[in-house]
Design a protein around this nucleic acid. Structure first.
Lengths: 203, 203
DNA sequence: GTCTATACTGTGATAGAC
DNA sequence: GTCTATCACAGTATAGAC
Protein backbone atom coordinates (compact mmCIF):
# COMPACT_ATOMS: atom_id res chain seq x y z
CA UNK A 1 0.00 0.00 0.00
CA UNK A 2 2.27 2.70 1.27
CA UNK A 3 5.62 1.86 -0.22
CA UNK A 4 7.00 5.37 -0.41
CA UNK A 5 10.06 5.91 -2.47
CA UNK A 6 12.81 4.81 -0.17
CA UNK A 7 16.21 3.49 -1.15
CA UNK A 8 17.01 -0.15 -0.51
CA UNK A 9 17.36 -0.10 3.27
CA UNK A 10 21.03 0.62 3.79
CA UNK A 11 20.86 1.23 7.50
CA UNK A 12 19.04 -2.01 8.10
CA UNK A 13 17.28 -0.92 11.21
CA UNK A 14 14.83 1.92 11.34
CA UNK A 15 12.46 1.45 8.45
CA UNK A 16 10.14 -1.53 8.33
CA UNK A 17 10.83 -3.72 5.29
CA UNK A 18 14.39 -2.34 5.22
CA UNK A 19 15.78 -5.78 4.66
CA UNK A 20 12.36 -7.41 4.53
CA UNK A 21 11.56 -5.74 1.23
CA UNK A 22 13.58 -8.34 -0.61
CA UNK A 23 11.79 -11.23 1.07
CA UNK A 24 8.49 -9.53 0.59
CA UNK A 25 9.17 -9.06 -3.10
CA UNK A 26 10.04 -12.74 -3.43
CA UNK A 27 6.80 -13.72 -1.76
CA UNK A 28 4.70 -11.49 -3.99
CA UNK A 29 6.53 -12.84 -7.01
CA UNK A 30 5.88 -16.43 -5.90
CA UNK A 31 2.24 -15.68 -5.10
CA UNK A 32 1.83 -14.08 -8.53
CA UNK A 33 3.15 -17.23 -10.16
CA UNK A 34 0.83 -19.42 -8.09
CA UNK A 35 -2.18 -17.38 -9.22
CA UNK A 36 -1.08 -17.18 -12.84
CA UNK A 37 -0.40 -20.90 -13.10
CA UNK A 38 -2.79 -22.63 -10.77
CA UNK A 39 -5.55 -20.07 -10.98
CA UNK A 40 -7.53 -18.42 -8.24
CA UNK A 41 -9.97 -20.89 -6.78
CA UNK A 42 -10.85 -19.54 -3.39
CA UNK A 43 -7.37 -20.29 -2.06
CA UNK A 44 -6.90 -19.79 1.63
CA UNK A 45 -3.76 -18.08 2.87
CA UNK A 46 -2.72 -21.45 4.27
CA UNK A 47 -2.90 -22.99 0.80
CA UNK A 48 -1.08 -20.04 -0.75
CA UNK A 49 1.63 -20.29 1.90
CA UNK A 50 2.08 -23.99 1.20
CA UNK A 51 2.38 -23.45 -2.55
CA UNK A 52 4.84 -20.62 -1.94
CA UNK A 53 6.87 -22.55 0.61
CA UNK A 54 6.26 -20.78 3.91
CA UNK A 55 3.84 -20.74 6.77
CA UNK A 56 0.62 -18.79 6.59
CA UNK A 57 1.65 -16.72 9.57
CA UNK A 58 4.83 -15.70 7.79
CA UNK A 59 2.72 -14.38 4.94
CA UNK A 60 0.61 -12.44 7.40
CA UNK A 61 3.73 -11.07 9.04
CA UNK A 62 4.79 -9.54 5.74
CA UNK A 63 1.43 -8.40 4.44
CA UNK A 64 -0.83 -8.04 7.44
CA UNK A 65 -3.89 -9.56 5.83
CA UNK A 66 -4.97 -11.76 2.98
CA UNK A 67 -6.44 -8.89 1.01
CA UNK A 68 -3.20 -6.94 1.32
CA UNK A 69 -1.36 -9.88 -0.27
CA UNK A 70 -3.88 -10.09 -3.11
CA UNK A 71 -3.57 -6.36 -3.63
CA UNK A 72 0.23 -6.61 -3.66
CA UNK A 73 -0.07 -9.15 -6.48
CA UNK A 74 -2.21 -6.76 -8.50
CA UNK A 75 0.23 -3.92 -7.80
CA UNK A 76 3.07 -6.08 -9.09
CA UNK A 77 1.07 -6.79 -12.21
CA UNK A 78 0.44 -3.08 -12.72
CA UNK A 79 4.12 -2.24 -12.27
CA UNK A 80 5.08 -4.97 -14.71
CA UNK A 81 2.52 -4.31 -17.44
CA UNK A 82 1.97 -0.58 -17.16
CA UNK A 83 5.18 0.46 -18.96
CA UNK A 84 4.70 -2.21 -21.61
CA UNK A 85 1.19 -0.97 -22.35
CA UNK A 86 2.33 2.62 -22.53
CA UNK A 87 5.08 1.72 -24.97
CA UNK A 88 2.67 -0.22 -27.16
CA UNK A 89 0.24 2.70 -27.22
CA UNK A 90 2.85 5.16 -28.44
CA UNK A 91 4.00 2.68 -31.09
CA UNK A 92 0.72 1.39 -32.44
CA UNK A 93 -1.91 3.72 -31.03
CA UNK A 94 -4.83 2.95 -28.75
CA UNK A 95 -6.99 1.25 -31.35
CA UNK A 96 -4.48 -1.54 -31.87
CA UNK A 97 -3.20 -1.67 -28.30
CA UNK A 98 -6.43 -2.57 -26.54
CA UNK A 99 -7.02 -5.77 -28.55
CA UNK A 100 -3.34 -6.65 -28.08
CA UNK A 101 -3.72 -6.29 -24.31
CA UNK A 102 -6.67 -8.67 -24.43
CA UNK A 103 -4.57 -11.23 -26.29
CA UNK A 104 -1.94 -10.91 -23.61
CA UNK A 105 -4.47 -11.25 -20.79
CA UNK A 106 -5.68 -14.52 -22.27
CA UNK A 107 -2.31 -15.96 -21.25
CA UNK A 108 -2.59 -15.13 -17.55
CA UNK A 109 -5.96 -16.61 -16.65
CA UNK A 110 -5.31 -16.94 -12.92
CA UNK A 111 -4.42 -13.27 -12.60
CA UNK A 112 -7.49 -12.20 -14.56
CA UNK A 113 -9.57 -14.46 -12.34
CA UNK A 114 -8.04 -12.90 -9.24
CA UNK A 115 -8.66 -9.45 -10.66
CA UNK A 116 -12.33 -10.11 -11.42
CA UNK A 117 -12.94 -11.71 -8.04
CA UNK A 118 -11.22 -9.02 -6.02
CA UNK A 119 -12.93 -6.29 -7.97
CA UNK A 120 -16.36 -7.66 -7.08
CA UNK A 121 -15.41 -8.29 -3.46
CA UNK A 122 -14.04 -4.78 -3.04
CA UNK A 123 -17.23 -2.97 -4.05
CA UNK A 124 -17.93 -2.05 -0.43
CA UNK A 125 -16.04 1.16 0.37
CA UNK A 126 -14.64 -0.26 3.60
CA UNK A 127 -12.96 -3.18 1.84
CA UNK A 128 -9.17 -2.86 2.15
CA UNK A 129 -8.62 -2.95 -1.62
CA UNK A 130 -11.52 -0.66 -2.50
CA UNK A 131 -9.65 2.57 -2.96
CA UNK A 132 -6.78 0.96 -4.81
CA UNK A 133 -9.09 -0.66 -7.34
CA UNK A 134 -11.22 2.46 -7.71
CA UNK A 135 -8.12 4.52 -8.41
CA UNK A 136 -6.61 1.99 -10.80
CA UNK A 137 -9.86 1.89 -12.75
CA UNK A 138 -10.17 5.65 -12.85
CA UNK A 139 -6.55 5.96 -14.00
CA UNK A 140 -7.27 3.52 -16.79
CA UNK A 141 -10.37 5.44 -17.86
CA UNK A 142 -8.44 8.72 -17.82
CA UNK A 143 -5.57 7.32 -19.84
CA UNK A 144 -7.91 5.84 -22.45
CA UNK A 145 -9.82 9.10 -22.62
CA UNK A 146 -6.74 11.19 -23.30
CA UNK A 147 -5.68 8.77 -26.04
CA UNK A 148 -9.15 9.00 -27.55
CA UNK A 149 -8.91 12.77 -27.57
CA UNK A 150 -5.65 12.51 -29.45
CA UNK A 151 -7.22 10.12 -31.99
CA UNK A 152 -10.22 12.40 -32.35
CA UNK A 153 -8.02 15.42 -32.95
CA UNK A 154 -6.15 13.43 -35.59
CA UNK A 155 -9.47 12.82 -37.33
CA UNK A 156 -9.44 9.09 -36.89
CA UNK A 157 -12.68 8.85 -34.84
CA UNK A 158 -16.32 9.38 -35.69
CA UNK A 159 -17.63 12.66 -34.41
CA UNK A 160 -20.45 13.21 -31.96
CA UNK A 161 -19.32 10.63 -29.42
CA UNK A 162 -17.68 12.19 -26.35
CA UNK A 163 -14.33 10.58 -25.43
CA UNK A 164 -15.33 10.52 -21.76
CA UNK A 165 -18.23 8.20 -22.51
CA UNK A 166 -16.26 6.10 -24.99
CA UNK A 167 -13.43 5.69 -22.47
CA UNK A 168 -15.74 4.31 -19.83
CA UNK A 169 -17.45 2.08 -22.35
CA UNK A 170 -14.09 0.59 -23.35
CA UNK A 171 -13.13 0.03 -19.72
CA UNK A 172 -16.46 -1.60 -18.91
CA UNK A 173 -16.23 -3.69 -22.06
CA UNK A 174 -12.82 -5.00 -21.00
CA UNK A 175 -14.16 -5.96 -17.57
CA UNK A 176 -17.32 -7.55 -18.96
CA UNK A 177 -15.63 -9.47 -21.75
CA UNK A 178 -13.04 -10.82 -19.33
CA UNK A 179 -15.87 -12.11 -17.16
CA UNK A 180 -17.52 -13.74 -20.17
CA UNK A 181 -14.22 -15.30 -21.12
CA UNK A 182 -13.62 -16.63 -17.62
CA UNK A 183 -16.92 -18.47 -17.98
CA UNK A 184 -16.26 -19.61 -21.54
CA UNK A 185 -12.78 -19.44 -23.02
CA UNK A 186 -14.11 -19.76 -26.54
CA UNK A 187 -15.09 -16.08 -26.28
CA UNK A 188 -12.51 -14.18 -28.31
CA UNK A 189 -11.71 -11.17 -26.13
CA UNK A 190 -9.55 -9.41 -28.71
CA UNK A 191 -12.20 -9.80 -31.41
CA UNK A 192 -14.85 -8.12 -29.29
CA UNK A 193 -12.62 -5.19 -28.40
CA UNK A 194 -11.47 -4.88 -32.00
CA UNK A 195 -15.13 -4.81 -32.99
CA UNK A 196 -15.73 -1.87 -30.71
CA UNK A 197 -12.74 -0.03 -32.12
CA UNK A 198 -14.15 -0.55 -35.60
CA UNK A 199 -17.45 0.93 -34.42
CA UNK A 200 -15.87 4.17 -33.28
CA UNK A 201 -13.35 4.52 -36.12
CA UNK A 202 -14.04 7.02 -38.83
CA UNK A 203 -15.07 5.07 -41.95
CA UNK B 1 -33.19 -24.73 -9.26
CA UNK B 2 -35.51 -27.65 -9.96
CA UNK B 3 -38.92 -26.25 -9.28
CA UNK B 4 -40.83 -28.31 -11.81
CA UNK B 5 -44.38 -27.30 -12.57
CA UNK B 6 -46.30 -28.87 -9.76
CA UNK B 7 -49.63 -27.70 -8.39
CA UNK B 8 -49.71 -26.20 -4.93
CA UNK B 9 -49.17 -29.34 -2.88
CA UNK B 10 -52.68 -30.58 -2.22
CA UNK B 11 -51.74 -33.90 -0.70
CA UNK B 12 -49.36 -32.34 1.76
CA UNK B 13 -47.11 -35.30 2.16
CA UNK B 14 -45.19 -36.94 -0.66
CA UNK B 15 -43.41 -34.21 -2.54
CA UNK B 16 -40.69 -32.19 -0.87
CA UNK B 17 -41.75 -28.56 -0.57
CA UNK B 18 -45.37 -29.71 -0.90
CA UNK B 19 -46.31 -27.43 1.95
CA UNK B 20 -42.79 -26.10 2.40
CA UNK B 21 -42.95 -24.35 -0.94
CA UNK B 22 -45.04 -21.59 0.60
CA UNK B 23 -42.58 -21.04 3.42
CA UNK B 24 -39.70 -21.25 1.02
CA UNK B 25 -41.26 -18.64 -1.25
CA UNK B 26 -41.77 -16.35 1.72
CA UNK B 27 -38.16 -16.73 2.72
CA UNK B 28 -36.88 -15.97 -0.78
CA UNK B 29 -39.16 -12.98 -0.97
CA UNK B 30 -37.92 -11.68 2.38
CA UNK B 31 -34.29 -12.32 1.45
CA UNK B 32 -34.80 -10.46 -1.82
CA UNK B 33 -36.13 -7.48 0.09
CA UNK B 34 -33.18 -7.59 2.47
CA UNK B 35 -30.72 -7.50 -0.41
CA UNK B 36 -32.59 -4.84 -2.35
CA UNK B 37 -32.92 -2.54 0.65
CA UNK B 38 -29.91 -3.13 2.81
CA UNK B 39 -27.52 -4.14 0.07
CA UNK B 40 -25.19 -7.08 -0.13
CA UNK B 41 -22.25 -6.53 2.15
CA UNK B 42 -20.80 -9.96 2.73
CA UNK B 43 -23.83 -10.96 4.76
CA UNK B 44 -23.56 -14.29 6.52
CA UNK B 45 -26.51 -16.64 6.54
CA UNK B 46 -26.85 -15.90 10.24
CA UNK B 47 -27.27 -12.18 9.49
CA UNK B 48 -29.70 -12.88 6.66
CA UNK B 49 -31.68 -15.18 8.93
CA UNK B 50 -31.90 -12.52 11.59
CA UNK B 51 -33.10 -9.87 9.14
CA UNK B 52 -35.63 -12.32 7.73
CA UNK B 53 -36.81 -13.51 11.12
CA UNK B 54 -35.63 -17.10 11.39
CA UNK B 55 -32.66 -19.15 12.41
CA UNK B 56 -29.78 -19.74 10.05
CA UNK B 57 -30.36 -23.50 10.22
CA UNK B 58 -33.94 -23.03 9.08
CA UNK B 59 -32.63 -21.21 6.01
CA UNK B 60 -30.19 -24.02 5.36
CA UNK B 61 -32.95 -26.58 5.80
CA UNK B 62 -34.97 -24.94 3.05
CA UNK B 63 -32.15 -24.14 0.65
CA UNK B 64 -29.34 -26.54 1.50
CA UNK B 65 -26.58 -23.95 1.21
CA UNK B 66 -25.96 -20.25 1.23
CA UNK B 67 -25.24 -20.16 -2.48
CA UNK B 68 -28.53 -21.92 -3.18
CA UNK B 69 -30.36 -19.17 -1.32
CA UNK B 70 -28.51 -16.47 -3.23
CA UNK B 71 -29.30 -18.26 -6.46
CA UNK B 72 -32.97 -18.51 -5.49
CA UNK B 73 -33.03 -14.74 -5.05
CA UNK B 74 -31.64 -14.26 -8.55
CA UNK B 75 -34.13 -16.78 -9.93
CA UNK B 76 -36.94 -14.80 -8.31
CA UNK B 77 -35.58 -11.64 -9.89
CA UNK B 78 -35.48 -13.33 -13.29
CA UNK B 79 -39.05 -14.57 -12.94
CA UNK B 80 -40.18 -11.12 -11.90
CA UNK B 81 -38.34 -9.05 -14.49
CA UNK B 82 -38.14 -11.39 -17.46
CA UNK B 83 -41.73 -10.88 -18.63
CA UNK B 84 -41.53 -7.13 -18.08
CA UNK B 85 -38.38 -6.88 -20.20
CA UNK B 86 -39.93 -8.97 -22.96
CA UNK B 87 -43.00 -6.77 -23.03
CA UNK B 88 -40.90 -3.62 -23.21
CA UNK B 89 -38.86 -5.02 -26.07
CA UNK B 90 -41.90 -5.75 -28.19
CA UNK B 91 -43.28 -2.30 -27.43
CA UNK B 92 -40.23 -0.13 -27.84
CA UNK B 93 -37.65 -2.36 -29.47
CA UNK B 94 -34.25 -3.42 -28.17
CA UNK B 95 -32.52 -0.09 -28.70
CA UNK B 96 -34.76 1.68 -26.22
CA UNK B 97 -35.25 -1.24 -23.85
CA UNK B 98 -31.64 -1.79 -22.82
CA UNK B 99 -31.16 1.77 -21.49
CA UNK B 100 -34.55 1.51 -19.76
CA UNK B 101 -33.45 -1.68 -18.04
CA UNK B 102 -30.34 0.11 -16.79
CA UNK B 103 -32.49 2.90 -15.37
CA UNK B 104 -34.55 0.27 -13.57
CA UNK B 105 -31.46 -1.52 -12.23
CA UNK B 106 -30.24 1.71 -10.69
CA UNK B 107 -33.16 1.38 -8.28
CA UNK B 108 -32.23 -2.06 -6.92
CA UNK B 109 -28.62 -1.55 -5.92
CA UNK B 110 -28.46 -4.43 -3.45
CA UNK B 111 -29.63 -6.93 -6.02
CA UNK B 112 -27.17 -5.65 -8.61
CA UNK B 113 -24.43 -5.89 -5.97
CA UNK B 114 -25.44 -9.46 -5.18
CA UNK B 115 -25.50 -10.26 -8.87
CA UNK B 116 -22.01 -8.89 -9.52
CA UNK B 117 -20.56 -10.60 -6.47
CA UNK B 118 -22.10 -13.98 -7.13
CA UNK B 119 -21.13 -13.83 -10.78
CA UNK B 120 -17.47 -13.38 -9.89
CA UNK B 121 -17.56 -16.02 -7.17
CA UNK B 122 -19.18 -18.56 -9.48
CA UNK B 123 -16.48 -18.48 -12.15
CA UNK B 124 -15.14 -21.86 -11.01
CA UNK B 125 -17.14 -24.58 -12.78
CA UNK B 126 -17.70 -26.51 -9.56
CA UNK B 127 -19.37 -23.57 -7.84
CA UNK B 128 -23.05 -24.40 -7.13
CA UNK B 129 -24.35 -21.39 -9.04
CA UNK B 130 -21.93 -21.69 -11.97
CA UNK B 131 -24.20 -23.43 -14.45
CA UNK B 132 -27.20 -21.29 -13.60
CA UNK B 133 -25.31 -18.07 -14.18
CA UNK B 134 -23.64 -19.37 -17.34
CA UNK B 135 -27.02 -20.35 -18.75
CA UNK B 136 -28.71 -17.11 -17.73
CA UNK B 137 -25.95 -15.12 -19.40
CA UNK B 138 -26.07 -17.21 -22.56
CA UNK B 139 -29.87 -16.87 -22.69
CA UNK B 140 -29.49 -13.10 -22.43
CA UNK B 141 -26.88 -13.03 -25.21
CA UNK B 142 -29.11 -15.19 -27.42
CA UNK B 143 -32.16 -13.06 -26.82
CA UNK B 144 -30.27 -9.84 -27.58
CA UNK B 145 -28.78 -11.41 -30.69
CA UNK B 146 -32.16 -12.42 -32.12
CA UNK B 147 -33.48 -8.90 -31.48
CA UNK B 148 -30.45 -7.45 -33.23
CA UNK B 149 -31.08 -9.68 -36.21
CA UNK B 150 -34.62 -8.36 -36.37
CA UNK B 151 -33.37 -4.77 -36.21
CA UNK B 152 -30.76 -5.49 -38.86
CA UNK B 153 -33.35 -7.03 -41.17
CA UNK B 154 -35.51 -3.93 -40.66
CA UNK B 155 -32.59 -1.82 -41.84
CA UNK B 156 -32.11 0.00 -38.58
CA UNK B 157 -28.52 -1.15 -37.92
CA UNK B 158 -25.21 -0.40 -39.57
CA UNK B 159 -24.03 -3.22 -41.74
CA UNK B 160 -20.81 -5.20 -41.39
CA UNK B 161 -21.13 -5.84 -37.67
CA UNK B 162 -22.23 -9.42 -36.86
CA UNK B 163 -25.13 -9.55 -34.36
CA UNK B 164 -23.40 -12.37 -32.47
CA UNK B 165 -20.49 -10.09 -31.63
CA UNK B 166 -22.70 -7.08 -30.91
CA UNK B 167 -24.88 -9.16 -28.60
CA UNK B 168 -21.94 -10.23 -26.48
CA UNK B 169 -20.57 -6.70 -26.46
CA UNK B 170 -23.87 -5.38 -25.13
CA UNK B 171 -24.01 -8.09 -22.46
CA UNK B 172 -20.44 -7.42 -21.39
CA UNK B 173 -21.08 -3.68 -21.42
CA UNK B 174 -24.03 -4.14 -19.06
CA UNK B 175 -21.92 -6.19 -16.66
CA UNK B 176 -18.98 -3.82 -16.81
CA UNK B 177 -20.99 -0.62 -16.48
CA UNK B 178 -22.87 -2.03 -13.51
CA UNK B 179 -19.52 -2.74 -11.85
CA UNK B 180 -18.36 0.81 -12.55
CA UNK B 181 -21.61 2.14 -11.15
CA UNK B 182 -21.32 0.04 -8.00
CA UNK B 183 -17.99 1.77 -7.40
CA UNK B 184 -19.26 5.22 -8.34
CA UNK B 185 -22.95 5.94 -8.60
CA UNK B 186 -22.36 9.08 -10.58
CA UNK B 187 -21.74 6.84 -13.59
CA UNK B 188 -24.88 7.08 -15.72
CA UNK B 189 -25.51 3.49 -16.77
CA UNK B 190 -28.34 4.30 -19.16
CA UNK B 191 -26.29 6.97 -20.92
CA UNK B 192 -23.45 4.56 -21.64
CA UNK B 193 -25.75 1.89 -23.02
CA UNK B 194 -27.63 4.49 -25.04
CA UNK B 195 -24.29 5.62 -26.42
CA UNK B 196 -23.53 2.14 -27.63
CA UNK B 197 -26.93 1.86 -29.26
CA UNK B 198 -26.22 5.12 -31.09
CA UNK B 199 -22.94 3.66 -32.29
CA UNK B 200 -24.58 0.67 -33.95
CA UNK B 201 -27.65 2.49 -35.28
CA UNK B 202 -27.82 3.28 -38.96
CA UNK B 203 -27.24 7.00 -39.34
C1' DG C 1 13.60 -8.55 11.92
C1' DT C 2 11.77 -13.08 10.79
C1' DC C 3 9.16 -16.75 11.74
C1' DT C 4 6.60 -20.53 14.80
C1' DA C 5 3.08 -21.86 17.94
C1' DT C 6 -1.13 -21.24 19.59
C1' DA C 7 -5.59 -19.63 20.36
C1' DC C 8 -9.67 -16.74 19.33
C1' DT C 9 -13.87 -15.53 16.63
C1' DG C 10 -16.94 -16.27 13.01
C1' DT C 11 -18.14 -18.99 8.85
C1' DG C 12 -20.98 -22.62 6.29
C1' DA C 13 -22.45 -27.11 7.12
C1' DT C 14 -24.20 -31.54 9.43
C1' DA C 15 -26.55 -34.78 12.84
C1' DG C 16 -29.99 -35.72 15.75
C1' DA C 17 -33.55 -34.55 19.42
C1' DC C 18 -38.16 -32.85 19.56
C1' DG D 1 -40.09 -28.82 9.85
C1' DT D 2 -37.52 -26.66 13.39
C1' DC D 3 -33.95 -25.99 16.69
C1' DT D 4 -29.67 -27.35 19.56
C1' DA D 5 -25.35 -28.86 19.49
C1' DT D 6 -21.26 -29.60 17.17
C1' DC D 7 -18.08 -29.71 13.28
C1' DA D 8 -13.98 -28.35 10.37
C1' DC D 9 -12.23 -24.51 8.40
C1' DA D 10 -11.51 -19.64 7.53
C1' DG D 11 -8.87 -15.13 8.65
C1' DT D 12 -6.72 -12.91 12.36
C1' DA D 13 -4.01 -11.52 16.67
C1' DT D 14 -0.49 -12.17 19.93
C1' DA D 15 3.62 -14.17 22.47
C1' DG D 16 7.86 -15.51 22.19
C1' DA D 17 11.83 -18.37 20.00
C1' DC D 18 15.72 -17.62 16.99
Amino acid sequence: MDQETRGPGRTGKRAPYANGAKKRAELVEAAFRVFAEKGYLGLSIRQIAEAVGTSHTALLHHFGSKEALLEAVLVLREEREGPWRQELISEKGLLETVPAVMRHNAGIRGVIHLDATLRAEAISPDHPAHHFLLRRNQDFVDSVQSELERELAAGRLREGFPPAVLARQITALVDGIQLSWLYDESVDMAEHLQGFMDLIKKT
